[in-house]
Computed example of a mutant assay.
Amino acid sequence: MKKILQGITLITALSTASVGAQAGNYWKASALDGWIDGYVEATLLLNGNLDATGIDTDVDNGLVTLRGKVETDLDKALAQELAIGVDGVTGVENMLTVFSPGENEDSSVQTKLTDEKVATVVKTRLLAAPDISSTEIDVNSTKGVVVLQGQVKNDAEKQRAVDIAQKAIDVEKVVSKLKVSE
């Protein structure tokens, strides 16, 4: 009888520990999703080239879902680019609706807007990158060519800035005119 009680006690203890560990993992994942959600919303709201007041975000296991309304297709793409750039984001499901589509826009205007979107995305990612301390990097974009100018602390920071710029959508080439400060 004593062995049976010990066995039941051991099984009960192990199952309780297992439930506790699962609950701990749930809360850890939930807290990370909450942090990512707040960071994505702040990134969208603080971006000067995007009116994010109509955008709602949800995060589940690192997957960000964007819902709401934006004015142009470029705003929709910009919101997605900004969300993808947040640490911890594993993907973006872009369910934003364009309520005044830019189908009638002249192609030169469209190109200019795309260039502005690319420059904004790259600049935002550079500012958010923890391994780039310089805020003195200018970003210009023309027809998919991004030019980086300014001062950085070292060669590693210079290369990281180039890598970040190359990963943005619509970037075909990156020209680095960055100088290492002495």
Score class of each variant (00 low, 15 high):
residue 142 T to Y: 12
residue 73 D to V: 08
residue 22 Q to G: 09
residue 140 N to Q: 05
residue 59 V to Y: 00
residue 142 T to K: 13
residue 74 L to G: 15
residue 31 A to R: 09
residue 17 A to G: 06
residue 39 Y to M: 12
residue 37 D to E: 14
residue 67 R to G: 14
residue 157 E to L: 04
residue 172 E to K: 01
residue 165 A to V: 01
residue 105 E to W: 08
residue 130 P to I: 04
residue 138 D to Q: 11
residue 19 V to I: 14
residue 171 V to C: 11
residue 61 N to W: 07
residue 167 K to Y: 05
residue 93 E to C: 02
residue 30 S to W: 07
residue 65 T to R: 06
residue 68 G to Q: 12
residue 146 V to Y: 13
residue 112 K to E: 15
residue 29 A to S: 15
residue 75 D to Q: 01
residue 121 V to R: 00
residue 88 G to N: 01
residue 106 D to L: 00
residue 65 T to I: 10
residue 137 I to K: 05
residue 86 V to M: 04
residue 181 S to E: 15
residue 182 E to L: 10
residue 136 E to I: 01
residue 122 V to I: 11
residue 110 Q to P: 09
residue 174 V to N: 13
residue 170 D to R: 04
residue 150 G to H: 04
residue 38 G to M: 01
residue 19 V to F: 14
residue 182 E to Y: 08
residue 128 A to Y: 03
residue 87 D to A: 04
residue 163 D to I: 02
residue 41 E to D: 12
residue 108 S to K: 14
residue 8 I to T: 14
residue 147 V to N: 02
residue 7 G to R: 00
residue 131 D to Q: 09
residue 23 A to F: 15
residue 75 D to G: 01
residue 73 D to W: 14
residue 26 Y to H: 12
residue 47 N to G: 08
residue 110 Q to R: 13
residue 107 S to W: 15
residue 93 E to M: 03
residue 176 S to R: 06
residue 96 L to A: 10
residue 89 V to Y: 08
residue 91 G to E: 10
residue 86 V to C: 04
residue 137 I to F: 11
residue 100 S to F: 13
residue 177 K to T: 09
residue 48 G to E: 13
residue 85 G to K: 00
residue 129 A to M: 10
residue 159 Q to L: 05
residue 155 D to T: 09
residue 51 D to E: 11
residue 6 Q to M: 11
residue 153 K to L: 13
residue 54 G to M: 07
residue 166 Q to N: 07
residue 88 G to Q: 01
residue 137 I to V: 06
residue 116 E to V: 06
residue 7 G to I: 00
residue 180 V to C: 04
residue 77 A to M: 14
residue 182 E to Q: 12
residue 150 G to I: 04
residue 55 I to K: 10
residue 83 A to D: 08
residue 6 Q to D: 10
residue 82 L to E: 02
residue 29 A to Q: 15
residue 66 L to G: 06
residue 138 D to L: 09
residue 100 S to I: 10
residue 59 V to T: 00
residue 166 Q to K: 07
residue 83 A to N: 05
residue 30 S to P: 03
residue 82 L to T: 02
residue 117 K to Y: 03
residue 33 D to V: 01
